Simulated scan of single mutants.
Amino acid sequence: MKLGSKIAASTATAALAIGGVTLMAAPAQADLVTLCSGHGGAITLPTDLKVPAGASCFLDGTTIQGKVTVESDANLHILGGQIDGQVTVSSGGYFDASDTSVKGDVVNTGAYGTYLEDGTSVAALSAAAAEGADNDGFVFVVGSSASSVNATVGELYVTGSRLGGVSAEGVEYADIFDSVVRGDLSVTDAASGGILVDSEVIGDATYTGGNGPVAIGAGESEGFASSLNYIDGDLSVTGVSGGVYIDNNIVGGDLTASDNSPTAQIGDNNRVRGGILTQEVALRTFAAEVTAEFEAHEADLEEAVEEQRAETIEEALEAGPAF
């Protein structure tokens, strides 16, 4: 998927603009803050950046030498930029980064969503609920990297990316396609399960509780995935309801599949170096309705991102030059 911006930002000027960005003298010993409501280009801001509540900010090639705050119901889309500090996304806020380096963490609390694409790199990436938030939020990572991911709310979807350890607890689902996880992968009590295909986990992969379907490998569905999973440590899938499918995996440690209802379906194309502890039935055809459910996850998120990005850019351009 390629959702790169098709709109070029106007050339920015490194000066204050009435109705655009404002440099504010904060209390003594605090940093200056640039408020962004509008669009800006390839300049360096030696300040923190804040997108005020309800505003939209579109930046193309901008370097921000401080931290970034996206306030409630605000939107920030940054293309080809750099952020030296942490990004905090508040309730209902939206953060969208393409071809951008974020040296700090990205922290979402009750956010509408975060989308990373096209080589974007961030430190730790987290998503948590907020009291009174109107939505569960999403974390959508495409062709990007993060040193770790920790989600306790909403949808987690990763494709073509490189991550550190991944922890997803109480999320709607956790889907990982064609990616490398250089650490443990842990999914607990996911309401709609999750999938791991065409991927590598340099650690343990553990799925516990929640509803299915949970699919580790592609099963016998032609065209749904192109290669094996490689799991360096143990693979464990326990206590999942709604369906478990395990096939096309190389497991360096033990394979455990127990207490799942219905009983896990395990195929013949698993190679396990350690011990095997399973309650299993033979893998039947990986049902079309199951693959359709996973494919719908991506389609729904693509639609949400396209709409929110277009709205962000349109509102930022209408607001005028930010600086």
Rank of each mutant, 00 (worst) to 15 (best):
G119R: 04
F224W: 15
G243V: 07
L277M: 11
N211A: 11
A322K: 03
V240P: 04
S236K: 14
E222H: 06
G93S: 02
M1V: 07
G132C: 09
Y230E: 15
A124P: 01
I18K: 10
D175C: 07
D99M: 08
G80L: 10
A25C: 05
V305E: 07
F323P: 07
A42G: 07
A257T: 06
Q82N: 14
D247R: 05
A97C: 01
V305H: 06
L49T: 07
A322C: 14
E200D: 06
S145K: 14
V272T: 02
N150F: 11
A304C: 05
G104M: 00
L45T: 03
L59W: 03
A151W: 06
E169M: 10
A129T: 14
S91L: 10
N270G: 00
A129W: 08
A174C: 13
S98I: 02
L235V: 14
V281P: 01
I250F: 12
Q29D: 15
V149E: 08
A55W: 08
Q82I: 04
A191T: 08
D73L: 10
S90W: 01
G217I: 07
G160N: 15
G132A: 08
Y207P: 04
S179Q: 08
D204R: 06
D184Q: 07
Q29M: 11
K2H: 09
D232M: 04
V180R: 13
E315W: 08
I231Q: 10
L76N: 04
A174Y: 02
A288L: 08
E131I: 08
E315M: 13
R284Q: 14
Y112P: 01
L283M: 14
A316S: 12
D204Q: 05
H297E: 13
Y245Q: 07
E295R: 11
T11R: 11
P321N: 12
A129E: 15
S56Q: 12
R271H: 11
A74I: 07
E303S: 15
Q308W: 02
V290Y: 09
A26E: 09
S148C: 05
T278C: 10
G143R: 13
G132P: 03
T285S: 09
D204Y: 03
A174N: 11
I83C: 02
I64L: 10
D136N: 12
V171L: 03
S98L: 04
Q308S: 12
T13N: 10
T22E: 09
V237H: 01
A53E: 15
C57E: 08
G194K: 06
R182Y: 05
D96C: 00
T69V: 15
S192Y: 10
A205G: 03
A282V: 13
L32Y: 12
S121M: 01
H297F: 15
L163I: 04
S167V: 10
S148H: 02
I246H: 00
Q308H: 05
L125R: 10
E131W: 00
V153K: 11
A97K: 01
G219W: 01
E289G: 03
S221I: 10
P27A: 13
N249R: 03
Q279P: 06
S145I: 05
T100I: 03
G143N: 13
N269C: 01
N249E: 02
